[in-house]
Computed example of a mutant assay.
Amino acid sequence: MLGNLTYSNPTVIHFGKEALSHLPEELLKFGENVTLVYGMQSIKKSGLYDEVLKILKETGKKVSEISGVMPNPTIQKVREGIEITRKNKTDLLLAVGGGSVIDYAKAVAGCTYCEEDPWQKFYLNQEKCTNPVIPVGCVLTVTGTGSEMNDNGTITNHETKMKIGYKFGYEAFPKFAIMNPETTFTVSPYQFAAGTFDILSHILEQYFSGDDDNVSDDLAEGLMRSVIRNALAAKQDLTNYEARSNLMWASTWALNGLIAQGKATDWEVHMMGQAIAAYTDATHGMTLSCISIPYYQFISDFYLPKFVQFAKRVWEVPVEGKTDREVADEGLFRMRKWMETIGVAMNIEECGITAAMIDELAQNTPILNSSYHTMTRDEIKEIYNASLAYNAANKA
């Protein structure tokens, strides 16, 4: 391993068809005031809401609720949640849903006892969270974000057209995560595709790094091959338990910090995707997919050997008689065809962005000091325009 590192992850995972049976033992570790956090109506339609509420009552909990958590949860919704947790003296936030619900719960957990404006302090200033953090637990129903095993809480501010991630620290990691792959069976094909690409994108953004590390890269390549293979199997049958369980497990390990150890990382795709979502509220995974191919095609010029490695090891591109450029391009072509097969957005118009919006969008996109190349505003605009130009001719 390169350099020095410290790695710790406190989340307890209960995985499999019987995972929910472990919820009572986890609840007994916390006080009696539990705030149940969920989205719209999907967990009520599936019956999961009733199951969880029954367990909460059987374990003697006093239950308050925060419902209606939207995709791309807003700072306004966070402030609503803060009022509820303060009023009910919440001992545990139990998030039942996908990444948006879990991210939101962590944001409320970290912001409740902040004495300043949390948007300014945490999201704009990125100051360290030193106030008490309410414990969070989760019952995962949608795969993709990996939020069940990290401390990130990404929040949108529609007034300023900004979507920003913030890491609330060790205490904000979910104390436990209940993960039954069967709960993902009812997710729509569209949401399945978006969540699946989100998994791959997380891995890519930690994989493409100027600091190559054998162990981290080998882990990342194995995870990517698993995502690619199981996504195709699940696409054919969304109730394929083996495929869905492998995707759920890969999603967790894609963003719990493990494969980033010993490496620099490049999260510019997420910055661009989050900028799109701040304007249009488009589905997260689709905001990533629509700009990934033009971004990686552009970035590959700055460190071609890694893209050759990616093509050979992940996409099994034969190299005999080909230049490195041809091998790298073939790898990205195979990735693009896979993306089309699973059904993700390939054009920013599909996420609600028009040509007239690109100048302002590029100005509002955060630029990170990325691994291979730090983008300029003009280059960000170039990537958006390349996505906009994607059409049927690209599918030939």
Rank of each mutant, 00 (worst) to 15 (best):
G3K: 12
Y7T: 11
S8D: 07
T11S: 15
V12E: 12
P24G: 02
E25F: 05
E26A: 08
E26N: 13
K29V: 02
F30V: 09
G39Q: 01
M40W: 03
Q41P: 00
S42E: 11
S42A: 15
I43T: 09
L48I: 04
I55H: 04
L56K: 05
K57P: 00
K61H: 07
V63H: 09
S64Y: 10
S67M: 08
S67D: 05
G68P: 07
N72Y: 09
P73G: 07
E80I: 10
E80N: 13
G81K: 07
E83P: 00
E83R: 09
G97S: 03
V101I: 13
D103V: 07
K106Y: 02
V108I: 14
T112D: 11
Y113L: 13
D117A: 11
K121L: 02
F122K: 01
Q126M: 05
N131T: 14
P132Q: 13
V136Y: 09
C138Y: 09
T143L: 15
S147M: 12
S147D: 09
M149R: 02
M149S: 12
D151V: 01
N152V: 13
G153Y: 02
T156H: 11
T160R: 10
K161W: 01
K163G: 15
K163E: 15
Y166M: 14
E171H: 09
I178G: 07
N180G: 08
E182F: 01
Y190R: 14
Y190D: 01
I199M: 14
L200M: 15
D211G: 00
N214I: 01
S216V: 00
D218E: 11
R225C: 14
I228N: 09
R229H: 14
N230Y: 15
N230R: 01
A231S: 15
Q236R: 15
Q236S: 12
T239A: 12
E242F: 09
S245M: 07
S245C: 06
S245P: 04
S245G: 11
A254W: 03
L255Q: 02
G257Q: 01
A260W: 05
A264F: 03
E268M: 06
H270I: 01
M272Q: 06
G273S: 02
A277K: 06
A278Y: 06
T280P: 10
T283A: 13
H284C: 11
M286W: 10
S289K: 01
I293D: 00
I293K: 10
P294T: 11
Y296K: 12
I299H: 05
I299D: 03
D301M: 00
D301L: 04
F302N: 05
P305K: 12
K306Q: 13
F310H: 07
R313A: 04
V319S: 14
V319I: 12
G321Y: 10
R325T: 14
E326Y: 05
V327R: 08
A328G: 10
D329P: 03
D329G: 12
E330D: 11
E330I: 05
F333G: 00
F333K: 15
R334C: 00
W338G: 04
W338T: 03
V344M: 06
M346Q: 14
E349C: 02
E350F: 01
I353W: 06
T354D: 15
T354V: 06
M357C: 03
L361Q: 04
L361M: 05
P366W: 09
I367Q: 01
S371P: 02
E382Y: 09
K395H: 13
A396M: 14
